[in-house]
């Protein structure tokens, strides 16, 4: 059909209309891209400028004498609240919180998805429905109940400390945040893995059962090695969300040594003493944004890999 209609359309002068459509579409796309990238561009150029240049120059202009000083200052010297040791400590705080939270929530989501699709039990659909529901509970509404729970856990930690000699991390703000993010993330990670495993050939699980593999052996040897694409998607999603979280971080670790990056960045910018060092603020913001970008760049290539090829059918 198309072979017949295409020349006919060209003959009636459709070429110019088509070109015009293209110009409009790409023009709009370019405009939106520009809007979207503008703040990033301003951040980037500002972070390489000196304060003099910022105060006297154009916001969009490229730095005349690019300098790394604002980055170094943001990393090691700038004041967060009253301590002036840069944001590096808080950066590591975030890493210490994000890595376990992402890994634990992803593994639990994978296990949930495996059970909900390959070991279906009575009421599995209801359980999954309730977990989905958890995805749509607004963060704000769990702030206070969660604070109460964390308080109880903290007191339990003190009791343990007194009787056994170790609190097992209960009451530690970093552990608290990991706990909160794991609980809150399970809904999403389960959703991701359940939908992925729903399409995962059940015959592989049956074959492994006949081969004598146990529940966890099947999970570890068959399911996980074939889950790379969804694993990467989940890790990127969880990493971005947890790294960027400000609400839980400020509520449960808003002061003190365990403060994560996002809260620290806020405190840097909100410092009321002296001149506002825009270049340092921008550099700190860039540092705060880098890990999520890095995770995407490193893991993104697995997005497109079709690892299931060859599992079934001819």
């Amino acid at each position: 059909m198309s072979a017949v209609t295409t020349p006919a359309r060209q003959a009636s002068g459709g070429v110019s209309v088509k070109t015009l459509n293209r110009i409009v579409i790409y023009g709009l796309l370019a405009l939106f891209a520009l809007f979207y990238l503008m703040p990033l561009f301003v951040m980037l150029v500002t972070s390489f400028k000196t304060m003099d240049e910022i105060q006297n120059g154009n916001m969009l202009a490229l730095p005349k004498a690019p300098t790394f000083d604002p980055w170094l200052k943001a990393w090691g010297e700038t004041c967060v609240g009253l301590t002036c040791a840069g944001i590096k400590g808080y950066f590591w705080n975030s890493i210490k919180m994000v890595v376990p939270a992402v890994l634990i929530s992803t593994m639990l989501g994978a296990l949930n998805g495996y059970v909900l699709t390959k070991w279906r039990f009575r009421g599995a659909t209801l359980v999954f429905g309730l977990m989905l529901f958890a995805c749509f509970i607004p963060f704000q509404s769990v702030l206070l109940p969660m604070a109460t729970i964390l308080g109880s856990l903290g007191r339990f930690g003190v009791t343990l400390q007194n009787s056994v000699g170790t609190s097992f991390g209960l009451g530690n703000p970093t552990v608290n945040l990991v706990f909160v993010h794991v609980v809150y993330g399970i809904g999403f990670t389960t959703l991701f893995f359940r939908n992925y495993y729903e399409a995962f050939p059940t015959e592989l699980v049956k074959a492994a059962q006949v081969d004598g593999a146990s529940f966890f052996q099947i999970f570890r040897r068959i399911m996980l090695p074939n889950s790379m694409p969804i694993f990467v998607v989940t890790v990127i999603y969880q990493f971005t969300n947890i790294w960027n979280d400000f609400l839980f971080a400020s509520a449960y670790a808003g002061t003190g040594d365990a403060m994560p990056m996002t809260v620290a960045l806020n405190n840097v910018v909100n410092t009321s003493t002296g001149v506002v060092e825009y270049n340092v603020n921008m550099a700190a913001a860039m540092i705060a944004a880098l890990p999520t970008l890095l995770v995407y760049v490193l893991a993104g290539r697995y997005f497109v890999r079709g690892l299931m090829a060859g599992a079934v059918k001819g």
């Binding site: 050939p201 015959e203 592989l204 049956k206 074959a207 492994a208 059962q209 006949v210 081969d211 004598g212 593999a213 040897r221 068959i222 090695p225 074939n226 690892l307 299931m308 090829a309 060859g310 599992a311 079934v312 059918k313």
Partner: peptide, 20 residues
């Protein structure tokens, strides 16, 4: 008995080869 204890072997329609 559990499938692995029945002394059987099965060939599946989709072959069910472990892709990894």
């Amino acid at each position: 008995l559990h499938p692995s204890k029945r002394d059987i072997a099965m060939v599946f329609q989709s072959y069910a080869l472990y892709p990894n």
